[in-house]
Amino acid sequence: MDAMTKMWVSLVGIGLMAVSAVLITVARAKTKGFLRFVLSLAAFCLLIVGFIFGLISIV
């Protein structure tokens, strides 16, 4: 993998983690019940995918 591809993969990973942080903040501050669970689950999934992208950019 060349340097430019690693850079873009890394930026996507960082972006996914940022979206995850915003989503979990909104879920905890503004929602209740089932919607809160769904948004938290989506945020967790985005965090895991962002982490995987970060690992890919390192290797």
Rank of each mutant, 00 (worst) to 15 (best):
G15K: 12
I14S: 15
V59M: 13
V9T: 15
T5K: 15
F37W: 06
M1C: 08
F37D: 04
G33V: 04
G54L: 15
F37E: 05
I56E: 03
K30Q: 05
F51A: 15
I14N: 13
L23S: 05
L23A: 04
W8E: 08
V26Q: 00
K32V: 07
W8S: 08
V38G: 01
L47P: 00
I24S: 06
I48H: 08
K6N: 09
I24D: 01
F44C: 07
L46A: 12
S10N: 15
V19M: 12
I48C: 08
S40F: 07
I52C: 10
F34M: 06
L55A: 06
S57I: 04
M17W: 05
G50K: 02
G15R: 10
F44V: 07
V9L: 14
G33W: 02
A27I: 01
V26C: 00
F53D: 11
C45F: 05
A43Q: 03
A3P: 04
I14M: 15
M4F: 11
A29R: 15
T5I: 12
A27Q: 03
I14T: 15
V26E: 00
K6S: 13
A27R: 03
V9A: 07
V12W: 04
F53A: 14
K32D: 10
M7W: 08
V26N: 00
L11S: 06
I14K: 14
A3S: 15
K6L: 12
G13L: 04
L11G: 05
L16N: 08
I58F: 12
V26I: 05
L11V: 07
V22W: 07
D2E: 09
F37S: 10
I52R: 12
F53N: 10
A27K: 00
L41N: 03
V49Y: 10
S10E: 14
G13C: 09
G15V: 07
A21L: 12
M7H: 09
T25V: 08
W8Q: 07
I24H: 03
V19G: 06
I58V: 14
I24Y: 00
D2V: 02
V38P: 00
A42G: 01
F37V: 04
F34K: 05
G50F: 02
I24L: 03
V22A: 13
S10Y: 15
C45T: 12
L16C: 13
A21S: 09
T25K: 02
L39N: 00
S10V: 02
I14F: 15
A27N: 03
M4R: 14
V59W: 11
A29W: 08
V59Q: 13
V59Y: 13
S10H: 15
I48R: 06
I48K: 09
L47E: 01
A3C: 15
I48N: 06
L35H: 02
L23I: 02
V59S: 11
S20Q: 01
T5M: 14
V12G: 06
V22G: 09
M4S: 10
I14Y: 14
R36C: 01
F44H: 05
V38S: 01
L41F: 03
I56K: 02
W8R: 11
M1Y: 06
T25H: 11
A27E: 02
G54E: 09
A27H: 02
V38M: 04
V19C: 10
V22M: 09
V12L: 13
G33Y: 04
S40L: 07
T5Q: 14
R28H: 10
V59P: 13
L41I: 01
R36F: 00
K30A: 07
